[in-house]
Design a protein around this nucleic acid. Sequence first.
DNA 1: GCAAATCAAGGTTAATTAAGGTTAATGATG
DNA 2: CATCATTAACCTTAATTAACCTTGATTTGC
Lengths: 234, 234
Amino acid sequence: MKKQSIYYIEDEPYLGKIVKETLEKEGYEVVWETDGAKVLNRLHHWNPDICVLDIMLPNLDGYTLCREIKKMKPGLPVIFLTAKIETSDLVKGFEAGGNDYMRKPFSIEELMVRIEYHAKSSAAQEEEEKLEDEIQIGKYRLKRGSYELTTPTDLIRLSNRDMEVLDTLARNRNHVTERKELLMKVWGDDSYFNSRTLDVYIRKLRKHFREDTRIEIVTLKGKGYLFRVPELSH
Amino acid sequence: MKKQSIYYIEDEPYLGKIVKETLEKEGYEVVWETDGAKVLNRLHHWNPDICVLDIMLPNLDGYTLCREIKKMKPGLPVIFLTAKIETSDLVKGFEAGGNDYMRKPFSIEELMVRIEYHAKSSAAQEEEEKLEDEIQIGKYRLKRGSYELTTPTDLIRLSNRDMEVLDTLARNRNHVTERKELLMKVWGDDSYFNSRTLDVYIRKLRKHFREDTRIEIVTLKGKGYLFRVPELSH
DNA sequence: GCAAATCAAGGTTAATTAAGGTTAATGATG
DNA sequence: CATCATTAACCTTAATTAACCTTGATTTGC
């Protein structure tokens, strides 16, 4: 999975440099901004996964900035950093729409864990909205939510396993799906490696798709399967 | 607005007493539990706004407990408390579904702020789901408050279990409801796994819905059920 | 080089197992 | 005792395993 992108707003040059470099070493994409005034502008044409925001900025204060950010992108998680210790600041931070709050000095590992948590849960939310439920496969139509595969004439009800296997193949249609990936995704475990279970489901699926000769599940021995499907001319 | 109710699980008697009393002085409703084993059971007939959970419990560990809690009530926020300092614990905490993590010793003011934050955002989410009391299911109407399911001609009185099972299915209508989730939500325990109790209720419900062929409860073996319902043309 | 032998990955079909369905009987609770 | 919840006993079917077959790659012998 692609590592998260982080928008880090911090005016202290020494701390900023260290944090940026450490996070980058861990594989994150980091944009470090020292000038709070530029933030909104940049957010206009960039969608980071998360904001890490120092409260004590030279000109405008972090709470106000956070409110503005949330107005523009309500779903973008914001983690506050601050040297202050007062509870009232914490309250202000959350009231401004912040999602988490860390005191300086902070452990950078802890920051990373919290970044992962917030970025993931917001990603998960978006994911849910996005994933289209129905896709066209040749003259078939796969309805994920209702476990159905339909042709103009027919309706095939898929079992749980049927669906999971087909779904994995369909996500990678016209690309290789490694056997291992299938086993992991569907059975959560590749110790089924030498069992014939997967093959049985592949056979079932092939049978279902026999009506449309443009569709095939090609075996790539030692690798996996290629679910070949005519590209939709939309 | 009514103050939040807190389920506080902590085995240290001294700390527990102080925290409970302090929170109560602030107007919170606090139930302090020292025995982790009782938690799931109590959650069954009580809906706190938030859980505050010590990780180091005598018998079972907090991560496992958290996972169980989330299975039963996915929306209930959990804040972990711990004396440990390792980052790996933090990771485990979030992986177990925890929403926040505080190190002992912690400031009780900070705890309160975080409680407010998490309780509020989960309350806001629930709001969105708009727990309306009556919903239309095909030509049936489910009246949660009065445990009734009506057709134009008929009135079916639902028992407590009938209602809980149907309610869980109805919330996820046209999406998969995992068997485990049902068992956790309705029985608070998935050790009923091999009992036939749930199946008996499913059968009862299927019987009730026989009149409307567009409605069905599809079995997804190894996964759960899909309550298929015609989308309402609002 | 090259064909025959070998071997491992995957395919096919049928049998087996385990998840879930059905019905009636038994327990609990008011 | 009447209602609801659970268990028991038996049945059905999706999921898995077993047994055997096919295919394509790799090795071996010459």
